[in-house]
């Protein structure tokens, strides 16, 4: 009874799609094998083993001593026994003792290469304590791989769909006019931007970041400026939100970027604004942030990546 070093698998391991290679290394034999085992002992007559095989529709039966595997009786052994007339004899003298086994925490790539190399239809699977814990057939591998590949393809399709939706959005520019102290309509532009990203299938945590940035910029225009515009520009990879106003300008930009610092009036504060968190909030959610201010007006540009981490996956 012995295991072999890893043999060739029928796909190359240099430039095959990662998804497939990852699958055959990630999936363990214990994820795939049959654990609902029928076994016999060395004293079981071959005739009885033949009946069990027919009843359970298996083509090989492991012979055990306690939890230890000592042999296998295959369909071939049964046919030979019928042919040579020793079908009523016990298993012990006729079972296959020279066994090739797999271990349960090996990746299924081992099993695939074993099936490729040997003519057996099934391999017994042992635990690290050398106890029989399962049997594996190529059918077990095929069905589990199908399910897993299906799941992976679903993910891929989902991602492609998202990308094509955001490409559809690419090139769009929306400009929203914002009036001074127009609390009535405040939030409209941000809500529109949020809806647009949502319909393009952008991930919720990215939408939230864009919503925070656009809302803070929109409220800044309402609260502090003499009026201005909020511009949303979509590219395949980013949304750029620009807030531009025609004054009065920020006298000390560095101070304005300090959390908690605010020039808002009591009335504005009573409405829940003017906490001095606006620009710091925008900066914290932005992948790129610039601010320029003169007496003639302020321009804030904030860029947010639409598909962060995609390169990593």
């Amino acid at each position: 009874m012995y295991t072999l070093p890893m043999q060739e698998i029928p796909i190359n391991t240099y430039n095959s799609p990662n998804v497939i290679l990852e699958l055959i290394y990630k999936l363990k034999i214990k994820d795939v094998m049959t654990t609902d085992l029928v076994t016999a002992t060395k004293d079981t007559p071959l005739r009885e083993i033949q009946h069990i095989m027919r009843e359970r529709q298996v083509t090989g039966l492991p012979i055990v001593l306690g939890k230890r595997l000592i042999g296998i009786v295959s369909m071939d052994d049964i046919i030979k026994a019928l042919d040579k007339g020793y079908i009523n004899e016990k298993a012990q003298d006729y079972m296959t003792r020279n066994l090739i086994v797999l271990e349960d925490d090996m990746p299924i790539s081992f099993a695939i290469s074993y099936f490729d190399r040997f003519s057996y239809h099934r391999f017994p699977v042992l635990s690290k304590h050398k106890e029989l814990v399962g049997m594996i057939t190529s059918r077990d591998i095929t069905s589990t791989l199908l399910v897993e590949i299906n799941r992976e393809i679903e993910n891929l399709e989902q991602r492609t769909r998202t990308t094509s939706l955001s490409e559809e959005m690419s090139g769009e520019i929306h400009t929203y006019s914002i009036l001074k102290h127009d609390f009535e309509n405040a939030g409209y532009a941000s809500t529109e931007i949020k809806k647009r990203l949502k319909s393009a299938g952008i991930a919720p945590h990215v939408i939230r970041r864009a919503a925070i940035a656009s809302y803070e910029l929109e409220m800044n225009l309402v609260v502090h400026s003499d009026g201005g515009e909020l511009i949303a520009e979509y590219s395949p990879q980013t949304i750029q939100i620009t807030a531009r106003d025609s004054g009065p300008g920020i006298s000390d930009v560095e101070l304005a970027m300090t959390a908690g610092w605010s020039t808002a009036s009591e009335w504005i504060r009573s409405l829940g604004f003017g906490a001095g968190m606006g620009l710091p909030n925008v900066k914290s959610v932005a992948d790129d942030f610039t601010i320029e201010s003169t007496l003639n007006g302020t321009t804030v540009v904030c860029i947010i990546e639409l598909h962060p981490n995609q390169e990593e996956t």
């Binding site: 405040a186 941000s190 939230r208 409405l271 604004f273 968190m277």
Partner: peptide, 30 residues
């Protein structure tokens, strides 16, 4: 403070506040 709420409130949450005006709804939605 709606900016604080905007920046820190978790999603799928309930907001406890005294800000009874329309802008609170906008912040909640966003």
């Amino acid at each position: 403070l709606l900016s604080d709420v905007m920046g820190n409130a978790p999603s799928e949450s309930v907001l406890v506040t005294i800000q009874a005006h329309k802008n609170t709804v906008a912040v909640a939605s966003l």
